[in-house]
Design a protein around this nucleic acid. Structure first.
Length: 909
RNA sequence: GCCGGGAUGGCGGAAUUGGUAGACGCGCCGGACUCAAAAUCCGGUGCUGGUAACAGUGUGAGGGUUCGAGUCCCUCUCCCGGCACCA
């Protein structure tokens, strides 16, 4: 390692001044283009990506956490010898810009761009190792142009198609509402009862990739198991059966079949009615001559489209008076309309088996429909549980009614005695023989509706021509530019009121035509940005050959809330782009381009305490934690809180996610201004492991700052010693002095390397909070060394010099500014990022004597220092003669002695 | 409602995956320094009893497996994330 200085006497500032050193360090990285990523290298590449932010105004703690975690990984890998790349950009389209426009009368574009400028400055002040030359902004035409280009390709392939779908309609504001904007069934601004309305929309055939999206999860070894499980369940592959119920000619009047899908064909003999959605053709037919039915169907239109609401609402239904025929036993089953059956999913109809489906059971009880048991516990099980009351009863639901393992069919005619699989196969075969059904594999996953009736989004590049139909905009006319000067009224899309936008000519026939005024779901932009980062400035395509070098992303970091939607859409888009040939020819296709993100880290939320006062009419007035003083008892337990401004008490609420509504957000900028970026970064890493929720604590921030200042003070006190040791040309090797350490020094040296070993292990498993702990332990060990009576200047100097060098490098990914500054100041080198990652001195870890614990019946009773290679017989003897063991044995012999080498001896009495 | 997580001192968390529960930090208590305060440094700190040695007890609740359970199994409670138009 070369030294940066020749003179032994080192001058540095006595006090830790984060503002000064952070500015200097950041300037150093800027000037040296330290984080400009090379598009080719001898080194292995490491593409580290944090989820890009929505430019909501200013940085919040969640951002700081996300980007600090990413930056720690980036800097660590850089020191480990990787060619690293960490880009940053803006997920700039979205609803909040339109809301801000309504509130402040600012066009969404202006609001968004000004937020981006503020947030970019804030991100830069954190000292992130970002290659800003790759910045993308999704609301700019040079970005969304390629989204439109890909749309036209997918449209031509049939991967995008049009169909009608339900949206939340606000009948007062005459506008489509997001699920978030529907509160208790009412529009958030108008307060009007929301209705479902069917409108035409474009859909992406994600279901066509369902099988691959499911199967490839198995390859994602670097993903958390819980995320993969959630995605598997979301895709929801099921094996079931299609069943056709022929129309009853007498009541329906026409020939036809009612199609349903079921995963429980074994219970088909127990079907006692069928239920259809309000929009189902049979429902429409029945309602034509029945005003009560028409009224019920109208009632089903009320409320929003969110699944959570559907699942929790009261189940209601009405009998249509129509009948269908059971395909196997020929019974006439009544057709009901039920509000929980949805037209958009499956066939819009279900067969109901009340005895073996909990929801059907409830419905049947409510409307006095017949309940017919067709499944019984099998014999083995019946014997086992003979004493239990396991007889079927229609009085109340029992869990086993719905289970399919260890069950046999009863009351099912020729199917009696069959188990689940046998009944499944036999009934499916019989249905197929009668042409009334067949086995089918189905997915829960639905096609992705991407049309939005909003202004601030990427225009859908389609032209509607009366003669030619939906025509994609030709390449040479792309991008379709979203006009940025508009007025937002909150009622309908501004684009639909701008003839200068929508009036156009058909690219095919040249006749007058109308441009599509819907924009795309903002999830589309975030589905491919990781690819665009690889090819900044590319004006010839979505990506260029640089994508082949950088993709896939090696490490993706972002919130757990994106576990399903965003991550599934991005995986889907990666496959779409691959199949479009964007990542190279098919023959060159490698396993690695099938999935976009090799490793995934899902970070937890940042939460903080809440405080409030009861205002008029019981309304809570939320008070920011920064304005509150907490009182504690003599043990430090909180007993009350007071508002600093008036000294009067406030109520302590729960600890919740930082949000504007609860006024419990802590502005990271205040922390950065007061303590510096290193303190903010260190605290946020130290306070919790990345995947857990993090509770914010101002006191904890102080602690982080104190630690960094102690490092600075230690460096200042020892600057000359380290400098002289490093620069003495007559110096013998480190190894020479390390052999000559005193026992105390050897302990300190070993402690440091034990901490380093733990830290290296923790870095690999992404548990950074304990890496921060390790840094604190190393500093403590070094400080102890200072108060020890030591023999010899050089042995002391080698421990300090070696130890402090480890500390600086281990800490540098977390607190990059102070470590870079001290690395230079103390003459270790110019650039700590170019220094090799510290290695553990394994030899230093070996001890001659180890401590074993002694247990009696698993309970700690004593400790013992023994030679590290003592044999079992010796250990057993030592344990038995241990005073507290002897006392408990009271002359009796031990039943058993368990020796766990290097750990413990357990004497069983 | 469904799917996925979580719960450990006054607080944030640790425990190398079945082997000393509470590392590290915050807070609190005591001490040093100071005319004093702040800052800093040193020591203590799960709970109960005891001057103490020590004993008992303790990882959301209840059961189980094991020589030994925060960790594995079963049942339950509460909290959080997602549920397809918040991003």
């Amino acid at each position: 390692m070369s030294t940066g200085r020749t003179n032994a006497e080192i001058k540095m500032h006595q006090d830790y001044k984060p503002k000064n050193i952070e500015a200097v360090a950041q300037q150093y990285w800027n000037e040296k283009l330290t984080f400009r990523a090379e598009d080719q290298s001898e080194k292995p590449k490491y593409y580290c990506l944090s989820m890009f932010p929505y430019p909501s105004g200013k940085l919040h703690m969640g951002h700081v956490r996300n980007y600090t975690i990413g930056d720690v990984l980036l800097r660590y890998h850089r020191m480990k010898g990787f060619n690293v790349m960490q880009p940053m950009g803006w997920d700039a389209f979205g609803l909040p810009a339109e809301n801000a426009a309504l509130a402040n009368n600012v066009p969404p574009a202006a609001w968004t761009y000004s937020n981006i400028d503020v947030m970019r400055t804030q991100l830069q002040s954190l000292g992130l190792g970002v290659d800003w030359s790759r910045e993308v902004t999704t609301c700019k035409p040079d970005y969304y142009r390629w989204e439109q280009w890909l749309f036209t390709r997918l449209f031509q392939k049939g991967m995008i198609y049009k169909k009608t779908s339900s949206v939340n309609w606000d009948p007062v504001d005459h506008t489509v509402l997001a699920n978030e904007q529907v509160i208790d069934g009412r529009g958030w601004r108008s307060g009007a009862l929301v209705e479902k309305r069917d409108i035409p929309m474009y859909f992406m055939r994600i279901t066509q990739y369902a099988e691959e999206l499911l199967a490839d999860l198995d390859q994602l070894e670097g993903w958390p198991e819980q995320v993969k499980t959630m995605q598997r369940n979301w895709i929801g592959k099921s094996h079931g059966c299609e069943v056709y119920f022929p129309y009853d000619a007498a009541s329906i009047g026409t020939a036809g079949v009612l199609k349903v899908y079921t995963t429980r064909p074994d219970t088909l003999m127990g079907a006692t009615y069928v239920a259809v959605a309000a929009e189902h053709p049979l429902a429409t037919q029945a309602a034509a001559s029945n005003p009560a039915l028409a009224e019920f169907i109208a009632e089903c239109k009320h409320g929003g489209t969110a699944e959570a609401d559907m699942a929790t609402m009261e189940k209601k239904g009405t009998n249509t008076g129509l009948f269908v025929t059971h395909p196997l036993n020929g019974e006439q089953l009544p057709v009901w309309i039920a509000n929980y059956v949805l037209m958009g999913y499956g066939e819009g109809a279900v067969m109901a088996v009340p005895a073996h489906d909990e929801r059907d059971f409830e419905f049947a009880k409510k409307y006095n429909l017949p309940i017919k048991q067709v499944i019984e516990r099998d014999e083995i099980d019946a014997i086992k549980t003979a004493s239990l009351d396991n007889k079927f009863t229609a009085d109340h639901w029992q869990e086993w009614y719905g289970e399919k393992e260890l069950r046999i069919c009863i009351n099912s005619g020729k199917y009696d005695g069959l188990n689940f699989q046998q009944a499944f196969d036999t009934i499916s075969a019989d249905l197929q023989a009668k042409d009334l059904g067949q086995k089918r594999t189905q997915f829960r996953l639905r096609d992705w509706g991407i049309s939005r009736q909003r202004y601030w989004g990427c225009p859908i590049p389609i032209i509607h021509c009366a003669l030619c139909g939906d025509v994609p905009v030709p390449d040479e006319q792309l991008p379709v530019i979203l006009p940025e000067q508009v007025t937002i009224t909150g009622a309908g899309s501004p684009l639909a009121k701008m003839p200068e936008f929508y009036e156009t000519t058909c690219p095919q026939c040249g006749g007058a035509a109308k441009r599509e005024t819907d924009t795309m779901d903002t999830f589309v932009e975030s589905s491919w940005y990781y690819a665009r980062y690889t090819s900044p400035g590319c004006s010839t395509g979505l990506v260029d050959e640089r994508a082949r070098y950088w993709l896939p992303v090696d490490q993706y970091v972002g919130g757990i809330e994106h576990a399903i939607l965003h991550l599934l859409y991005a995986r889907f888009f990666n496959k779409l782009m691959r199949d479009e040939g964007l990542f190279g020819e098919q023959t060159l296709r490698q396993k690695s381009v099938n999935e976009p993100f090799t490793n995934l880290l899902t970070q937890g939320m940042v939460i903080a305490p809440t405080f409030f006062r009861e205002g008029a009419a019981g309304k809570k007035l939320w008070i920011n934690p920064a304005e509150v003083d907490i009182e504690t008892d003599s043990r430090g337990r909180p007993v009350g809180a007071k508002l600093r401004a008036d000294g009067q008490p406030v109520v302590i609420g729960g600890t919740e996610k930082m949000s504007k509504s609860k006024n419990n957000g802590v502005d990271p900028q205040i922390i950065i201004d007061q303590y510096g970026a290193d303190t903010a970064r260190f605290f946020i890493i130290f306070a919790a492991p990345p995947e857990q929720t993090l509770e914010w604590s101002d006191a904890g921030v102080e602690g982080a700052f104190r630690f960094l200042r102690r490092i600075w003070n230690f460096a200042y006190s020892n600057k000359n010693e380290i400098g002289i040791y490093r620069n003495n040309s007559n110096q013998k090797s480190d190894e020479y002095y390390l052999k000559a350490l005193s026992n105390d020094q050897r302990d300190v040296y070993r402690e440091m390397h034990v901490a380093l070993k733990q830290a290296n292990f923790d870095l690999q498993r992404l548990q950074f909070n304990t890496v921060a702990s390790a840094c604190m332990k190393i500093l403590k060990a070094l400080e102890q060394q200072m108060v020890l009576v030591t023999s010899g200047m050089n042995t002391k100097a080698v421990v300090i010099t070696n130890g402090f060098s480890i500390l600086l490098r281990l800490l540098s990914p977390i607190a990059p500014h102070i470590t870079q500054t001290l690395w230079q100041e103390l003459g270790y080198g110019d650039d700590i990022l170019s220094a090799p990652w510290p290695e553990v001195d394994e030899a230093a870890l070996i001890q001659d004597e180890i401590e074993l614990i002694i247990q009696v019946n698993g309970k700690l009773r004593g400790k013992l220092r023994v030679a590290k290679d003592a044999d079992h017989a010796t250990l057993e003897q030592l344990a038995l003669t241990h005073p507290s063991v002897e006392k408990l044995l009271a002359g009796q012999a031990a039943k058993k002695i368990i020796v766990v080498p290097g750990r413990l001896i357990n004497v069983v009495i």
